[in-house]
């Protein structure tokens, strides 16, 4: 079957989203970022927000998110995306302002900015990629790194007596009165990807409706940093990451 025949039959379930640019992605094959980028691009387009969106990119692997999703972007300093987004949204209240951050950015250096933006109930959506590692800088330990998990800065495995415990920041953010929606999803299967898309759409709707802060945590793989094949990384994530970071809504005040 040719591509044209498939399209004619109406059997296409996924195509390159209109708002994904033709720039070559720097993400490693098997990384979750590409899928989440596609979801964000699809949701923005489907909600008619392409001409209304201001994305705030982090420092980390998604530092170049602005190269791939074809809307206006501000590149923030490491961890400061929620502060940048706070001002962008307050000064432009009719815009769809969202941050896209990793676990090093959001739950280490930017913990204060994240908690306080959420506690103020800023009408923004936070997309949070949790892969338990610093990908961009070469696989160092993150606050979310699992106990016993090996990284470049805990080569013999994370020890809680030295490094503390994996930080479940999603649960922490759900405690705050400013958040209306905190959910933990993944993109390792088609079904999970569809749920994540629904969650991101919900988060964007909340932001536009002025309901407060929404956080969509996406438990993700970093197969390069984890030093695994993409398939193995997905299996390892299901077995280990999801045991510590179980999927599902942590808080939803909108339903």
């Amino acid at each position: 079957m040719t591509k044209e025949e498939i399209k004619k039959n109406g059997t296409v379930v996924a195509a390159k989203p209109r708002l994904i640019t033709d720039n070559q992605m720097h993400y490693c094959p098997g990384c979750s970022h590409g899928v989440v980028h596609s979801i964000v691009a699809e949701v923005l387009d489907e909600m008619g927000l392409a001409d209304n969106a201001i994305g705030v990119a982090p420092v980390g692997c998604a530092v170049f998110a602005y190269n791939y999703i074809d809307v206006d972007w501000i590149e923030a300093a490491h961890g400061r995306a929620p502060a940048v987004a706070t001002a962008a949204k307050r000064l432009n209240p009719d815009r769809m302002v969202f941050t896209y951050q990793g676990d090093g950015d959001l739950s280490a250096i930017g913990t204060a900015e994240t908690i306080h933006a959420a506690n103020r109930g800023e009408n923004i959506a936070i997309i949070f990629i949790n892969n338990g590692i610093y990908g961009m800088t070469g696989g160092q330990m993150a606050p979310t790194t699992l106990e016993g998990m090996k990284t470049a800065t805990c080569p013999y495995g994370r020890r809680v007596d030295l490094n503390g415990y994996p930080l479940k920041i999603g649960d922490l953010l759900a405690q705050l009165d400013g958040t209306c929606y905190v959910t933990r999803q993944s993109v390792h299967t088609t079904a999970a990807t569809r749920k994540t898309k629904k969650a991101i759409r919900q988060a964007f709707e909340n932001a536009m409706a002025g309901r407060g802060t929404s956080v969509v945590e996406v438990v993700s793989t970093c197969n390069s940093g984890w030093k695994m094949s993409p398939v193995k990384a997905n299996e390892w994530m299901e077995e280990h990451m999801m045991a510590k970071y179980p999927l599902g809504d942590i808080k939803n005040t909108v339903k």
């Binding site: 400061r80 940048v84 706070t86 001002a87 000064l91 204060a112 306080h116």
Partner: peptide
């Protein structure tokens, strides 16, 4: 808009965000 930020770090990054939007 007047906002008391959680820190000077947050405040200056709010300025960065606001200035980015031409305000």
């Amino acid at each position: 808009v007047v906002l008391q930020a959680e820190s000077e770090l947050a405040a200056i990054n709010m300025v960065y965000g606001g200035a980015s939007t031409g305000k």
